[in-house]
Design a protein around this nucleic acid. Structure first.
Length: 279
DNA sequence: AAGCCAACCTGGACGC
DNA sequence: TGCGTCCAGGTTGGCT
């Protein structure tokens, strides 16, 4: 059984970034509706007033965060577990749990919807972005060449399960439970294996598998599970769910060996793996 | 001090 | 049908 949520991880956030960019680049913010709602970091209407009049220069992604960047200030957004960003015509009715609406000089609007309220939406000075949380706390970008070395160094210093180390955003930024499990499957590594008991060679292989998995998922437009939880800025679903090797496939057949995929719980989070292919 | 774990929150799945 | 219970997940903060 697939879990009923499709949580945005790096490929989904990158997909949102790319689909958002043509609608936001060069556009001016001409109005805001910021509802004071308790997200993980609450939306503060006073703080959001600084975003009025901003001309969007670009959209950056760091880990699972997006920064909609103007010359002076940027909106730093995290989709949490259920967050969505959508560009829509104002005539379309607002979905439930719409916390933020940014009116653009194109006549359209950017909407931030997050039923489970694990997301965040704050405004920060653009020049300080790399220097303050959350960006300052994030580890390597898994798509960068430096990621392999960072993973190796971190693994040598801890005996936590490798799946849990992958979820540590201060090591690799942007990997969540779906892609952590998928990368381990590609690398043939058991999710519960202590990080410091993996050889350098196998860690390099894992870093490579993480990168490949994320790049494939980005190319597919992200993962949308059966409930249709994830969509890009224009409402399109992603196509990576059909390529999942282990995630959500407990008791199903391993496509490589024909064995049975298992689920175990590691520190409160499900891990999926093929006992025959992963050690 | 590393590492575990509860809390946050809601909708969907499931059992009775 | 309808109500209650459980579960998913990213991140933070508190505890050991």
């Amino acid at each position: 059984m697939l879990p009923s949520v499709a949580v945005p991880e790096l490929p989904e956030v990158e997909t949102v970034r790319r689909s958002l960019l043509p609608h936001l680049e060069g556009r001016r913010v001409v109005g805001l509706e910021a509802r004071r709602v308790r997200l993980r970091q609450g939306i503060e209407p006073d703080e959001w007033r600084a975003f009025e009049g901003v001309v969007v220069r670009t959209i950056q992604r760091r880990g699972k965060y997006l920064a909609v960047t103007g010359d002076e200030v940027s909106a730093v957004l995290h989709l949490g577990m259920s967050g969505r960003l959508a560009v829509a015509d104002p005539s379309r009715p607002h979905a439930a749990h719409t916390h933020l609406v940014v009116h653009l000089d194109s006549g359209r609007e950017l909407r931030f919807v997050d039923p489970r309220r694990f997301g965040s939406a704050v405004v920060r000075p653009t020049r300080t972005l790399p220097l303050v949380p959350p960006f300052a706390l994030l580890g390597a970008e898994p798509l960068d060449d430096a990621a392999g070395g960072v993973l190796r160094d971190a693994a040598g210093r801890t005996r936590v399960a490798i799946r849990n180390l992958q979820l540590d955003q201060t090591v690799l930024a942007g990997v969540g439970n779906i892609y952590a499990n998928e990368a381990l499957a590609r690398a043939g590594i058991h999710p519960g294996r202590p990080a410091n008991r993996l050889s350098r060679r196998r860690l390099d292989r894992l870093a490579w598998a993480v990168r490949e998995t994320l790049e494939d998922a980005i190319a597919a437009g992200g993962t949308t599970l059966e409930d249709g939880g994830f969509a890009n800025a224009t409402g399109e679903a992603g196509n990576f769910a059909v390529d999942l090797a282990v995630y959500g496939r407990d008791d199903a057949t391993c496509r490589r060996c024909g064995g049975v995929i298992r689920r175990v719980v590691l520190t409160g989070r499900s891990a999926y793996f093929c006992p025959h292919c992963q050690h």
